[in-house]
Amino acid sequence: MSARALALGATLYMPCTRTDLAARLFGPGRIPDLRSVVLCLEDAVLERDLPEALSNLGGLLRFADAREGGPSDPMIFVRPRDAAMLARILRMPGAGRLTGYVLPKANTETVPCYLALHIPDGQMLMPTLETREACDPHEMRRLRDQMLAVQDRILALRIGGNDLMQSMGLRRSAGSTAYDGPLGPIIAMLVATFSPWGFSLSAPVMERFGDAALLRRELARDIDHGLLTKTAIHPDQIPIIQNALAVPSRDVEEARAILDPNGPAVFAQDGVMCEPATHRVWAERILARAEVFGKADGLPIHKRA
């Protein structure tokens, strides 16, 4: 996972129908510890509310464009309904202040329509894998090969868990993580299809935002799958997600030992075989994650010389 994708942390989705966007992102009432946000004009907005939502977005962009940005500002993405709406957003005053765009319903038919637009250099794209094609390994290989040509523009691929469940006529039951039903094998397939080719992926939302214990269980499975950023739908989920991404001290020390240029080709540490030739990428990701989210025990991270 790239360092910038890792920095997304818990990406909060907010509908553009909200009238307090500027206050929640930049003002005294800003959401604590928010690293990234997606302002949604798609599923979270009714058709009849689109004019109001677009007006709210325009107001936020003008506000953001008139202020001096700071290092604590969140990364801001907009999720349009389709390529035509994205073209309209690109013409809005202040659109250059956006970090990028979430591309809904990404597949081999829709992605070329987005890529045909003149999206400024530096603005990143996050296609969302949420149509029934995402259940088909062949279709996902076609999409991967299509996106390899613009991989430098793809910050992360977002897994749209609720939409994928909807395509099967299902909804996860109370007490179940995303990995406990048919969505689990699909997530594993998407990781295997895209991650070895250098694409970062984001874990799907946990819609039961009132169940913190279940969210922590799901986060453990996310991390096992290498999904080190996750969609959030409620501010209360943000600290839970980002605290879960903190790294146990033992993993940091193991990673440092693996990356030691003077270390042996294989060694044991705390009863675990460590082999730098096969564990190097894992170790690099562990240290990168620790730099962003810290150690789970709260101890400081000391960079290697």
Results as ranks from 00 to 15, higher is better:
L12P: 10
T19F: 03
D20I: 08
L21S: 02
R24W: 03
R24P: 03
G27A: 06
P28I: 04
P32V: 04
D33T: 12
L41S: 11
V45N: 06
V45Y: 03
N56P: 11
G59M: 08
A66L: 00
G70C: 02
P71G: 08
P80Y: 10
R81G: 05
R81S: 06
D82P: 02
G96S: 14
G96M: 05
R97H: 13
G100H: 02
P104N: 12
A106H: 05
T108A: 10
T110D: 00
T110Q: 05
Y114N: 09
L117R: 13
H118Y: 02
D121M: 12
Q123N: 03
M124D: 12
P127L: 06
T128M: 13
P137D: 01
M140C: 07
L157K: 00
L157N: 01
G160H: 07
G161V: 10
N162R: 01
M165K: 11
S167K: 02
G169V: 10
R172S: 09
S176A: 14
Y179A: 14
D180K: 10
G181P: 00
P182K: 05
P182H: 05
P182Y: 07
I186D: 02
I187T: 10
T193R: 03
S195A: 15
P196R: 08
P196K: 06
G198D: 10
S200V: 02
S202A: 14
P204H: 10
E207F: 11
F209G: 12
D211E: 15
A212C: 04
A212L: 09
A212P: 03
L219F: 08
A220R: 15
D222V: 06
T231H: 03
I238M: 13
I241C: 14
A244L: 01
S249M: 04
S249A: 13
E253A: 03
E253C: 01
E254R: 13
A257Y: 05
A257M: 15
D260M: 07
N262F: 06
G263P: 00
G263R: 05
V266K: 15
F267V: 00
F267G: 03
D270Q: 12
V272Y: 07
T278P: 04
V281G: 00
A283S: 07
I286Q: 03
G294I: 11
A296Y: 00
L299D: 14
L299Y: 02
P300E: 08
K303S: 12
